[in-house]
Amino acid sequence: MSRKRTQTLPDIYKPKRRLCSAAAALASNGQTTVISALNGDIGDVILNDTHAFLKRLRGLFPADKFKHKLPPIVLKHQLYGMMNDRTKVDQELNDLRKRGVVKLFKLGSEADEYCILFTNDYEEHVKKTMTALSMSPILIERFSSNVVKKCQDVCISKETLMMDYRFSDFEITQLVKASVITVKEIGNWWLSIPNAGTFMKCFLRGRKAVLTMIRKCKYKEILRKDLEHRKWPKICRLGLIYHVHDIIGGELVHCVQTTSGQLLRLKE
Protein backbone atom coordinates (compact mmCIF):
# COMPACT_ATOMS: atom_id res chain seq x y z
CA MET A 1 0.00 0.00 0.00
CA SER A 2 1.56 3.21 -1.15
CA ARG A 3 1.47 6.33 0.88
CA LYS A 4 1.37 9.77 -0.65
CA ARG A 5 3.65 12.25 0.97
CA THR A 6 2.03 15.53 1.89
CA GLN A 7 4.20 18.44 0.95
CA THR A 8 3.85 21.88 2.34
CA LEU A 9 4.36 24.55 -0.28
CA PRO A 10 6.53 27.50 0.65
CA ASP A 11 4.63 30.74 1.22
CA ILE A 12 5.92 32.19 -2.01
CA TYR A 13 3.89 29.66 -4.03
CA LYS A 14 0.68 30.08 -2.09
CA PRO A 15 -2.10 32.14 -3.69
CA LYS A 16 -2.42 35.57 -2.16
CA ARG A 17 -5.49 37.68 -1.74
CA ARG A 18 -5.80 40.40 -4.31
CA LEU A 19 -4.67 43.87 -3.34
CA CYS A 20 -8.11 45.30 -3.97
CA SER A 21 -9.61 43.04 -1.32
CA ALA A 22 -7.29 44.51 1.29
CA ALA A 23 -8.11 48.02 0.14
CA ALA A 24 -11.82 47.25 0.29
CA ALA A 25 -11.41 46.04 3.87
CA LEU A 26 -9.68 49.28 4.81
CA ALA A 27 -12.39 51.29 3.10
CA SER A 28 -15.09 49.42 5.03
CA ASN A 29 -13.37 50.50 8.25
CA GLY A 30 -13.52 54.13 7.19
CA GLN A 31 -9.77 54.33 6.58
CA THR A 32 -8.10 55.92 3.61
CA THR A 33 -5.16 54.35 1.87
CA VAL A 34 -2.37 55.62 -0.31
CA ILE A 35 -2.80 52.72 -2.73
CA SER A 36 -3.87 53.41 -6.26
CA ALA A 37 -2.11 50.61 -8.01
CA LEU A 38 -5.44 48.79 -7.82
CA ASN A 39 -6.34 50.10 -11.25
CA GLY A 40 -2.79 50.22 -12.53
CA ASP A 41 -2.43 53.96 -11.90
CA ILE A 42 0.37 54.25 -9.39
CA GLY A 43 0.46 58.05 -9.56
CA ASP A 44 -3.19 58.47 -8.61
CA VAL A 45 -2.84 58.55 -4.84
CA ILE A 46 -5.66 59.02 -2.31
CA LEU A 47 -4.36 61.36 0.40
CA ASN A 48 -7.31 61.46 2.80
CA ASP A 49 -11.07 60.86 3.04
CA THR A 50 -11.94 64.30 1.68
CA HIS A 51 -9.72 63.64 -1.34
CA ALA A 52 -11.52 60.35 -1.99
CA PHE A 53 -14.95 61.98 -1.88
CA LEU A 54 -13.72 64.86 -4.05
CA LYS A 55 -12.68 62.39 -6.72
CA ARG A 56 -16.09 60.72 -6.53
CA LEU A 57 -17.89 64.07 -6.93
CA ARG A 58 -15.54 65.07 -9.74
CA GLY A 59 -16.64 61.94 -11.58
CA LEU A 60 -20.27 63.11 -11.43
CA PHE A 61 -19.52 66.32 -13.33
CA PRO A 62 -20.72 65.91 -16.95
CA ALA A 63 -17.88 67.74 -18.75
CA ASP A 64 -19.06 66.37 -22.11
CA LYS A 65 -22.39 68.18 -21.75
CA PHE A 66 -20.48 71.46 -21.58
CA LYS A 67 -18.38 70.44 -24.60
CA HIS A 68 -15.37 70.37 -22.25
CA LYS A 69 -15.46 74.16 -21.93
CA LEU A 70 -15.68 73.82 -18.16
CA PRO A 71 -13.44 71.88 -15.78
CA PRO A 72 -15.07 69.46 -13.28
CA ILE A 73 -16.43 71.69 -10.49
CA VAL A 74 -17.26 70.42 -7.00
CA LEU A 75 -19.21 72.46 -4.44
CA LYS A 76 -17.64 72.58 -1.00
CA HIS A 77 -20.96 71.96 0.77
CA GLN A 78 -21.44 68.75 -1.23
CA LEU A 79 -18.58 67.31 0.85
CA TYR A 80 -20.34 68.30 4.08
CA GLY A 81 -23.34 66.22 3.05
CA MET A 82 -21.19 63.17 2.27
CA MET A 83 -18.92 63.19 5.32
CA ASN A 84 -21.11 64.71 8.09
CA ASP A 85 -18.04 66.18 9.81
CA ARG A 86 -17.41 69.75 8.73
CA THR A 87 -14.32 70.16 10.87
CA LYS A 88 -12.67 67.14 9.29
CA VAL A 89 -13.59 68.33 5.79
CA ASP A 90 -12.11 71.77 6.44
CA GLN A 91 -8.91 70.37 7.95
CA GLU A 92 -8.33 67.82 5.20
CA LEU A 93 -9.26 70.30 2.48
CA ASN A 94 -6.76 72.78 3.90
CA ASP A 95 -4.10 70.06 3.77
CA LEU A 96 -4.94 69.35 0.12
CA ARG A 97 -4.63 73.06 -0.67
CA LYS A 98 -1.22 73.27 0.98
CA ARG A 99 -0.08 70.25 -1.02
CA GLY A 100 -1.25 71.97 -4.22
CA VAL A 101 -3.74 69.21 -5.04
CA VAL A 102 -6.84 71.46 -5.14
CA LYS A 103 -7.80 75.12 -5.37
CA LEU A 104 -10.81 76.90 -3.84
CA PHE A 105 -12.84 79.60 -5.57
CA LYS A 106 -15.48 81.99 -4.27
CA LEU A 107 -18.88 81.12 -5.65
CA GLY A 108 -22.04 83.19 -5.34
CA SER A 109 -22.84 86.02 -2.94
CA GLU A 110 -22.89 84.11 0.35
CA ALA A 111 -19.80 84.29 2.55
CA ASP A 112 -19.43 80.50 2.82
CA GLU A 113 -20.14 79.56 -0.80
CA TYR A 114 -17.06 78.02 -2.39
CA CYS A 115 -16.31 75.56 -5.14
CA ILE A 116 -13.30 73.29 -5.52
CA LEU A 117 -11.23 72.34 -8.55
CA PHE A 118 -8.34 69.94 -8.80
CA THR A 119 -5.29 72.09 -9.57
CA ASN A 120 -4.41 70.10 -12.69
CA ASP A 121 -7.94 70.56 -14.07
CA TYR A 122 -7.84 74.30 -13.39
CA GLU A 123 -4.39 74.72 -14.95
CA GLU A 124 -5.47 72.89 -18.10
CA HIS A 125 -8.65 74.96 -18.34
CA VAL A 126 -6.77 78.26 -17.88
CA LYS A 127 -4.18 77.38 -20.53
CA LYS A 128 -6.88 76.34 -23.00
CA THR A 129 -8.90 79.53 -22.41
CA MET A 130 -5.94 81.91 -22.66
CA THR A 131 -4.59 80.15 -25.74
CA ALA A 132 -7.99 80.48 -27.45
CA LEU A 133 -7.76 84.24 -26.83
CA SER A 134 -4.35 84.28 -28.56
CA MET A 135 -2.55 85.48 -25.46
CA SER A 136 1.20 85.36 -25.11
CA PRO A 137 2.53 81.87 -24.31
CA ILE A 138 4.95 83.52 -21.88
CA LEU A 139 2.08 85.20 -20.00
CA ILE A 140 0.16 81.91 -19.91
CA GLU A 141 3.14 80.02 -18.52
CA ARG A 142 3.93 82.72 -15.93
CA PHE A 143 0.35 82.76 -14.66
CA SER A 144 0.29 78.96 -14.53
CA SER A 145 3.65 78.47 -12.79
CA ASN A 146 3.21 81.35 -10.34
CA VAL A 147 -0.44 82.10 -9.52
CA VAL A 148 -2.03 78.71 -10.26
CA LYS A 149 0.62 76.64 -8.53
CA LYS A 150 1.75 78.97 -5.74
CA CYS A 151 -1.23 81.09 -4.67
CA GLN A 152 -3.28 79.16 -2.08
CA ASP A 153 -5.77 81.93 -1.32
CA VAL A 154 -9.06 82.61 -3.13
CA CYS A 155 -8.02 86.19 -3.90
CA ILE A 156 -4.85 88.04 -4.82
CA SER A 157 -3.72 91.65 -4.41
CA LYS A 158 -2.24 94.01 -6.97
CA GLU A 159 0.88 94.25 -4.83
CA THR A 160 1.38 90.46 -4.98
CA LEU A 161 0.79 90.37 -8.72
CA MET A 162 3.18 93.22 -9.44
CA MET A 163 5.84 92.90 -6.75
CA ASP A 164 6.02 89.13 -6.18
CA TYR A 165 5.06 87.78 -9.59
CA ARG A 166 6.22 90.75 -11.71
CA PHE A 167 3.07 91.23 -13.78
CA SER A 168 2.68 94.61 -15.50
CA ASP A 169 -0.54 96.65 -15.59
CA PHE A 170 -1.07 95.55 -19.19
CA GLU A 171 -0.62 91.88 -18.28
CA ILE A 172 -3.07 92.21 -15.37
CA THR A 173 -5.59 93.68 -17.81
CA GLN A 174 -5.04 90.63 -20.02
CA LEU A 175 -5.67 88.31 -17.09
CA VAL A 176 -8.95 90.11 -16.35
CA LYS A 177 -9.89 89.81 -20.02
CA ALA A 178 -9.32 86.05 -19.83
CA SER A 179 -11.53 85.90 -16.69
CA VAL A 180 -8.84 84.13 -14.66
CA ILE A 181 -9.10 87.00 -12.17
CA THR A 182 -12.14 89.20 -11.46
CA VAL A 183 -12.43 92.41 -9.47
CA LYS A 184 -13.13 91.99 -5.76
CA GLU A 185 -12.40 95.57 -4.72
CA ILE A 186 -9.90 98.25 -5.68
CA GLY A 187 -6.47 96.65 -5.73
CA ASN A 188 -7.76 93.11 -5.14
CA TRP A 189 -9.01 90.33 -7.41
CA TRP A 190 -10.73 87.00 -6.96
CA LEU A 191 -9.07 84.06 -8.66
CA SER A 192 -11.78 82.87 -10.99
CA ILE A 193 -12.85 80.16 -13.40
CA PRO A 194 -13.37 81.17 -17.04
CA ASN A 195 -16.95 80.40 -18.17
CA ALA A 196 -18.08 80.06 -14.55
CA GLY A 197 -21.23 82.00 -15.47
CA THR A 198 -22.38 79.07 -17.62
CA PHE A 199 -21.92 76.73 -14.68
CA MET A 200 -23.84 79.00 -12.29
CA LYS A 201 -26.75 79.31 -14.70
CA CYS A 202 -27.06 75.53 -15.06
CA PHE A 203 -26.47 74.95 -11.37
CA LEU A 204 -29.22 77.32 -10.18
CA ARG A 205 -31.65 76.02 -12.79
CA GLY A 206 -30.96 72.42 -11.76
CA ARG A 207 -31.29 73.13 -8.04
CA LYS A 208 -34.66 74.79 -8.65
CA ALA A 209 -35.82 71.81 -10.74
CA VAL A 210 -34.94 69.17 -8.13
CA LEU A 211 -36.55 71.16 -5.30
CA THR A 212 -39.68 71.55 -7.43
CA MET A 213 -39.77 67.76 -7.92
CA ILE A 214 -39.77 67.22 -4.16
CA ARG A 215 -42.31 70.00 -3.57
CA LYS A 216 -44.77 68.28 -5.88
CA CYS A 217 -44.52 64.98 -3.97
CA LYS A 218 -47.00 63.99 -1.28
CA TYR A 219 -46.03 65.63 2.01
CA LYS A 220 -43.15 67.26 0.09
CA GLU A 221 -40.92 64.25 0.67
CA ILE A 222 -39.47 61.41 -1.36
CA LEU A 223 -37.10 58.48 -0.92
CA ARG A 224 -33.69 59.39 -2.24
CA LYS A 225 -33.44 56.23 -4.36
CA ASP A 226 -36.79 57.06 -6.00
CA LEU A 227 -35.72 60.64 -6.70
CA GLU A 228 -32.43 59.53 -8.27
CA HIS A 229 -34.29 57.29 -10.71
CA ARG A 230 -36.66 59.99 -11.93
CA LYS A 231 -36.45 61.39 -15.43
CA TRP A 232 -34.32 64.51 -15.47
CA PRO A 233 -34.98 67.51 -17.77
CA LYS A 234 -32.34 67.64 -20.49
CA ILE A 235 -31.99 71.38 -20.05
CA CYS A 236 -30.47 70.75 -16.60
CA ARG A 237 -27.07 69.52 -17.68
CA LEU A 238 -25.42 68.81 -14.32
CA GLY A 239 -27.53 65.73 -13.66
CA LEU A 240 -29.86 64.70 -10.87
CA ILE A 241 -27.35 62.93 -8.59
CA TYR A 242 -25.03 65.96 -8.67
CA HIS A 243 -27.94 68.08 -7.40
CA VAL A 244 -29.00 65.54 -4.79
CA HIS A 245 -25.57 65.99 -3.19
CA ASP A 246 -26.07 69.76 -3.51
CA ILE A 247 -29.40 69.96 -1.69
CA ILE A 248 -28.28 67.56 1.05
CA GLY A 249 -24.97 69.31 1.69
CA GLY A 250 -26.63 72.72 1.39
CA GLU A 251 -29.18 71.62 4.02
CA LEU A 252 -32.13 72.45 1.78
CA VAL A 253 -33.80 69.18 2.79
CA HIS A 254 -34.12 67.15 5.97
CA CYS A 255 -32.53 63.69 5.67
CA VAL A 256 -34.45 60.98 7.54
CA GLN A 257 -33.26 57.37 7.75
CA THR A 258 -36.10 54.90 7.21
CA THR A 259 -36.37 51.13 6.74
CA SER A 260 -36.79 51.83 3.01
CA GLY A 261 -33.73 54.06 2.76
CA GLN A 262 -32.95 57.74 3.10
CA LEU A 263 -35.96 60.04 2.92
CA LEU A 264 -35.55 63.61 1.69
CA ARG A 265 -38.06 66.05 3.16
CA LEU A 266 -38.23 69.61 1.86
CA LYS A 267 -37.48 72.34 4.38
CA GLU A 268 -40.01 75.13 4.58
Rank of each mutant, 00 (worst) to 15 (best):
R99Q: 14
L191P: 03
V256G: 03
T119R: 10
K14V: 03
F170G: 03
D90Y: 01
I116R: 00
S136E: 12
C217L: 02
S192W: 00
G239K: 00
W232C: 12
I241R: 06
D95H: 03
D121P: 01
Y13P: 03
D44N: 13
M83Q: 13
K149G: 06
I181L: 03
S145A: 15
P233K: 06
I73E: 14
I186L: 08
D95C: 03
H245Y: 14
L263T: 02
R99N: 06
S168Y: 02
L9G: 05
R142M: 06
V102M: 06
L75R: 10
D95A: 15
T198M: 07
P62L: 06
Q152F: 09
P62S: 05
G30L: 00
V210Y: 02
D112P: 00
A37F: 05
R86M: 08
R230W: 10
K234Q: 13
I241L: 14
F143T: 04
L263P: 02
T259N: 11
N146T: 15
G261R: 06
A111N: 14
M162T: 15
S192Y: 06
Q257P: 08
T212G: 05
S157V: 07
A27Q: 13
Q174P: 02
A23M: 08
A24G: 10
L19H: 08
K65G: 06
L9A: 15
R207W: 00
S134M: 09
I222V: 15
V256N: 02
S144R: 12
C20I: 14
T182C: 09
N120Q: 11
K103D: 02
D44W: 08
L19D: 09
H125G: 11
Y114F: 15
F105L: 11
K150C: 14
W189S: 01
S136A: 06
P72S: 08
K216V: 05
W189N: 01
N84W: 10
V210M: 07
V180Y: 01
L79P: 04
K103N: 12
V74D: 05
D85R: 01
R224T: 10
K98C: 01
N188A: 13
P15W: 01
F61P: 00
N29L: 15
D112A: 12
Y122H: 12
Y219G: 04
V34L: 08
C255D: 01
R207L: 09
Y114C: 08
C20Y: 11
F143R: 00
G206Y: 01
H229N: 09
W190R: 02
K149L: 11
I73C: 12
E110W: 02
P194I: 07
L227R: 02
L107H: 13
R265Y: 06
N84L: 12
K55E: 03
S168K: 02
C255R: 11
V154A: 04
